[in-house]
């Protein structure tokens, strides 16, 4: 099979696009979830705290805690999971503090993101990288 220079270039481009495609799909799922929550609003860097372990041996139960004084809701996302949404905490009038902790599943080493919606309609975002030794989404 003889390929011209132009055809070779086209093949190379196609292969590159294929290699990057899965990552782009994963990123857009996270972006979609963020957009659905914030409506595309700007996010401040301060105002929300995410406590997660640096290394999690078992991805099936990773303890996390979120805290955002003055928040009405906090969304948690796992950017590297097949489904990035994890949970959304909404605080009622009798919430003692705007914090909560739970245990989540992580498919592998990835960034966990917390976005808080404040009472005045602004948003704050934070992220934390968790190294996962054994993934928690099954095969």
């Amino acid at each position: 099979m003889n390929l011209t220079r132009r055809e070779t270039m086209a093949l190379g481009l196609g292969a590159t696009a294929m290699a990057f495609l899965p990552f782009r799909v994963a990123a857009s799922a996270t972006d979609d979830a963020v957009a659905a929550f914030t409506g595309g609003a700007e996010m401040a860097d301060a105002g929300v705290t995410l406590t997660a372990p640096e290394i999690a041996e078992n991805g099936n139960t990773v303890p996390i805690a979120v805290d955002a004084p003055g928040a009405v809701a906090i969304m948690v996302l796992a950017t590297g999971n097949p489904l990035p949404n994890v949970a959304t905490f909404s605080f009622g009038p009798l919430a003692g503090s705007h914090s909560a902790s739970t245990r989540i599943r992580l498919a592998g080493t990835q960034d966990v993101v917390a976005i808080a919606r404040m009472a005045d309609g602004t948003f704050a975002r934070t992220a934390s990288t968790v190294k996962v030794t054994i993934g928690g989404c099954g095969g």
Binding site: N60, T61, V62, A65, A78, N81, L83, N85, V86, A87, T88, F89, S90, F91, G92, P93, L94, A95, G96, S97, S99, A100, S101, T102, R103, I104, R105, L106, G136
Partner: peptide, 26 residues
């Protein structure tokens, strides 16, 4: 508590087996 919401959590499949929550209430 007495009809007033403390916390309302929307859960997705990424929550672990035997869901655990810890939070504070007035």
């Amino acid at each position: 508590f007495n009809g007033e919401t403390v916390i309302d959590v929307k859960m997705e499949p990424a929550i672990s087996t035997n869901p655990f929550f810890e939070f504070e209430a007035k």
